[in-house]
């Protein structure tokens, strides 16, 4: 059962990475405009550069 000493921290770390990732997307307003995001994919890249987010 010694393997638990590695496995449990690894499992928890992976989970925390996922959680941190989600909280980051939330913080950077990525869920603010789901409809607009679907449309923005159609815009040309050069346009995108000028209006990129902070």
């Amino acid at each position: 059962m010694d393997i638990l000493i590695y496995l449990i921290p690894i499992a928890l770390t992976l989970g925390l990475v996922g959680l941190a990732g989600f909280l980051w997307t939330l913080k950077s307003n990525q869920y603010e405009d789901l409809e607009g995001a679907a449309h923005r994919i159609l815009l040309d890249d050069e346009d995108e550069e000028t209006n990129s987010e902070k």
Binding site: E32, D33, L34, E35, G36, H39, N51, E53, K54
Partner: peptide, 9 residues
């Protein structure tokens, strides 16, 4: 500096 349109809202 920034112009952003939010389509949903």
């Amino acid at each position: 500096d920034l112009a952003r349109v939010n389509m949903s809202t």
